[in-house]
Design a protein around this nucleic acid. Structure first.
Lengths: 332, 332
DNA sequence: ATAGTGTATGTAATCCATTACATCAAGGAG
DNA sequence: CTCCTTGATGTAATGGATTACATACACTAT
């Protein structure tokens, strides 16, 4: 590996001149520039980023923190984040916390240690206080999952309203016992979706019973288990809203295995519109978030913070869409 | 942000002593160490990694390069990679190339620029020569998708043999016209699976016809399109082997939409055993790769290269498993 | 001819932590 | 009592690039 010193010597100029050729480009006479560029070629030189970063105190790397890359929901958001980042000369790196506090902390240390310039948080294990401090010290934004109180900008949808629409859709189809498959993990989005569910029941004049809520972990398997619990009830629901597509699909699968017909015997609504929601049978009615655009928007907010050190705690609420398919209305 | 100098001054010692407290721990008397640690606490100091990395010429960060985080197949491998890496004090970062050569190059520059210590390649856009050079210059290993000729270590399964088993399974069920859904992208794994398919046909005494091969892009949608092509044939196959699960599931969906019964009218085998393969109807017969363990093994190889600069081009072939489910044998 | 202006380039400080080598004190051997 | 060893700590060079400031030169205006 050659250094800037070697290039300077080879070109017969000072390191400052080489640096000028590499960067600002101003005030270097053509002939000198040519000599330097030739030397760079010959030595196959490329600047050592550690040296540069140390001096500049910036890396132009952005980190995306998410709990599990195996959840396809995140993929589109990451693509949106990356698109905007790349357009602005930043590189994006994905860090998989596995919902582990210690791992999450390790990754966040990359911010502290200045190894990344900023972070997009797609879900966090930390509490409001920690997040609030993090937001004060470093450029971070939240995307999709968020904590409002922490003064950290976020991009999200109105989860309560989306859940309200999903459940109202079921109610409008005549269902009077509507189950909820929620999450035992205590995410705010889950709480909001749950309160949207409650509100929709109330507005439809339906009775709420605690038995109607089961708790999963966002995965297929847990959806199946919740469905089995529903089927063991004497007075089982005729419709179920699951706060994630994999849980909805797991439930759908379990119901069908027991011989129930979807949507005749039981209707199902999911959340997130993952690709597979169109592949299962019947296709799944679900809420679509504009994940790609949410990622883009989140990255734009982050860029403002990284570049201009602006720290208005912006809040962006994006539109969602209820996509009606065969799991609630036969033949659609 | 405080520096080591400030800590040294606050503790009334030299920077060397502070550094010793931070690192080797040898030869620092207890009382001094206590003073330094108190100063570190008070100043809320943590070492600047850029300075450290510049000096040490290492970052303890490992990069995983993959074409698309939305393909669930990669997630498990990444988890395996991360597990081993974390156990050894390394941080793992995932870089999403979107199969874009330029993006891939940008990410690989992180190696050149010393911003990461090594890389696990899960699929590459570059040609044999570029890969060979990359392997000579930096610690890299291949996982799953690989190029043999480049002298870069790899962990994989025997793709030809796996495809052979899949197709032989179909032949043993009595199918005589067996279609293949392959990839138009020119990955070696696709070529190997295709040659396993050919070999199995030959060994089963079946005729090959070029019409029996259709080409997709690994995704659901392309699987559906291929299935539609098959259905337009006068003499359509009674069984199909797809080299990815999403394509298999897409095909399954398309066949069912046309009223075909699976597996009675047409049997389907996929590849990768993604989670959905158990969620679709009927469940999908597929080849399972030990993805998590492959990730672990790849990371172990990489660690040898990163730490001991060992450069034997090791080749690890792992076992796969044919998982027989309802898409080929009713009721299983 | 002289002062003044502007442009191209060089010198050296700087970012922060690590580490080879230097120093100093204390204790042991002769 | 002197010399040597050992252990603890300090001094300063080092890694590579950036950049404020200095210098040198050419050219214009008077």
């Amino acid at each position: 590996m050659s250094t800037i010193q070697q290039v300077a010597k080879a070109a017969g100029v000072s390191v400052a001149t080489v640096s000028r050729v590499l960067n600002h480009s101003d005030k270097v006479v053509d002939e000198t520039r040519a000599r330097v560029e030739r030397a760079i070629q010959e030595l196959n030189y490329s600047p050592n980023m550690m040296g540069r970063n140390l001096r500049r105190n910036a890396t132009e790397i952005i980190m995306v923190l998410l709990p599990s890359i195996s959840n396809p929901f995140y993929a589109h958001a990451v693509n949106g984040i990356a698109a905007v980042a790349n357009n602005n000369g930043f590189t994006v790196t994905v860090c998989n916390t596995l919902s582990d506090r210690k791992l999450e902390r390790d990754f966040l240390n990359l911010l502290k240690f200045k190894l990344v310039d900023g972070a997009v948080l797609m879900s966090q294990e930390m509490d409001d206080c920690e997040l609030e401090e993090l937001g004060r010290l470093y450029p971070v934004v939240q995307c999709s999952e968020y904590i409002d109180a922490a003064g950290v900008p976020y991009v999200t949808i109105d989860n309560a309203s989306a859940a309200y629409d999903a459940v109202s859709h079921l109610a409008s189809l005549g269902h009077t016992r509507i189950g909820l498959i929620s999450s035992k993990v205590n995410y705010y989005s889950a709480a909001h979706r749950q309160s949207g569910y409650m509100q929709a029941l109330q507005d439809a004049g339906l009775e709420f019973e605690s038995e109607l809520i089961k708790f999963g972990d966002y995965g297929y398997g847990s959806g199946m288990k919740c469905a089995e619990q529903f089927m063991r009830m004497q007075n089982r629901p005729t419709a179920v809203f699951a706060i994630s597509d994999p849980m909805a699909i797991g439930a759908l699968k379990a119901f069908r295995q027991k011989g129930l017909k979807i949507p005749e015997d039981i209707a199902i609504v999911g959340f997130d519109n993952i690709r597979f929601s169109k592949m299962c049978e019947p296709e799944l009615t679900t809420i679509a978030q504009p994940t790609y655009r949410m990622g883009c928007r989140a990255m734009e907010l982050l860029l403002e913070r990284v570049e201009h050190k602006q720290d208005l705690p912006e809040k962006v609420i994006m539109d969602y869409e209820l996509i009606i398919r065969g799991s609630t209305v036969a033949g659609s």
